[in-house]
Amino acid sequence: MTVNIPQLRAFLAVVEAGGFSAAAVELGMSQSAVSHAVASLERELKAPLLVRATPVRTTALGEGILPHARTALSAVRSVEEIAAEVAGTMTGTVRLACTPTVCQGLGPELLRHWNEARPQVTVRVFEGDSTEIAAWLADGVADAAIVIDPPPGQGIHLTEDRYRAVLPRDHPLADEPLVGIGDLEDDRFLISPNNCEARIRAIHAQAGLPFAPAHRVRDLATLISMVQAGVGVTVLSEVSRSLLPPDLVLLPLKPEMSRDLALTGPHTGPWHPAVRTLAESAAACLTALRAGGTEC
């Protein structure tokens, strides 16, 4: 039995793209070449790996070999990228996962920065919640992720993301330099039930106040629109600043609460060689922004 890398690459591309034509575009190959590679892999393994439907699905065998195919290709990519780094010609694609708030708040600026600083490295963004991101890293779907409050020793620190009060610009407290969470007791409090809720609960607990949101809003854009409309106020992290329209203000909050944003690779197995380079570049970019720069 002879299984080769092009076969595994074609199989994995079809699974991730959901079909042969999309995989062909992704790989820069003809659709017939992709079909031939997958078919030859199935002949070697003596069983079908895919159900040819829309979208394509894996068979039991296909599902079984999927994580091993990802591991094999990850190892090959690491070998290629290490050699490229030594030669000063690092290229390739890094698949980056992050939560919606981080993706929308930091993503555009970081992607622009990376495109200028590391044009030979392509960064593809996958948006998901923390559970999905952890699974993508473990399964090899993502090469790296921007994670929130990683365990000590894991990841490369990017920035400290502080929590702020979000108020309409015509709110009586909008011109204050600092807002206490207790100052917002007379307002209806809005919350997005995501990873931030535990920290916002902790802010209330530190102030000795009950946590009793008037509305729970899943979508961040909807939450922001409701504050715009005067339905209530909320608390978001600093990374959300770029998402706010001009008729809302983001104010320092007391008690203080923050979260650590870090860029990490898989917890087990090798990192894509470009990840550390991207992390160091991103940290410098965010430091420049915190110092008052308009761009990295």
Rank of each mutant, 00 (worst) to 15 (best):
A198W: 02
N194Q: 10
T159P: 00
H157F: 12
L220H: 13
E238D: 12
L167E: 04
I156N: 07
V233R: 04
L253M: 09
E238G: 11
D139L: 05
F189Q: 05
Q228M: 12
V141Y: 12
D143W: 04
K254R: 13
G208C: 13
R164D: 00
G140Q: 09
L220W: 05
V239C: 05
A205E: 15
V231P: 00
M257H: 08
R199M: 11
D183I: 02
E185Q: 13
G155K: 02
M257Q: 13
R259D: 07
K254Q: 11
W136I: 01
S192D: 03
V235A: 07
H157Q: 11
H157G: 06
G182M: 03
A174K: 05
R241P: 00
A138H: 12
L137C: 04
R188K: 09
A142P: 15
L253T: 08
A145H: 14
E238C: 04
A202F: 07
S242C: 07
S240D: 06
M226L: 15
L223W: 06
R201C: 00
L173I: 02
R162V: 10
P193N: 08
A207C: 09
A145F: 12
D247A: 15
G232L: 06
A138G: 07
A165E: 03
A165N: 07
I156H: 15
V147Q: 10
V235N: 04
A202G: 10
P151S: 10
R218C: 00
E160W: 08
K254Y: 07
M257W: 06
V227N: 00
E238L: 12
S225D: 14
C196G: 02
T159L: 14
P172K: 01
P151G: 10
S240T: 02
S258Y: 06
P151A: 13
V233C: 08
P150C: 07
G153M: 00
Q206M: 12
C196K: 14
D187Y: 12
R199K: 13
P150H: 07
P210H: 10
G208T: 09
L253S: 08
P213F: 12
L250H: 08
A142L: 13
P252T: 01
V235D: 04
V233P: 03
P168K: 11
G208Y: 13
A165Y: 06
A174R: 09
L167S: 05
I203L: 11
L223A: 05
Q228C: 13
I224C: 07
I146M: 11
L243R: 05
D186V: 07
I148A: 08
I181D: 03
L220N: 03
V249Q: 05
M257T: 03
R216C: 02
A205P: 02
R259F: 00
V239T: 15
I203T: 03
L248C: 04
A144P: 13
V249L: 08
A165W: 11
D186R: 15
A165S: 11
T159V: 15
Q228W: 01
G180Q: 02
N194A: 01
R199C: 02
A144D: 13
Q154S: 08
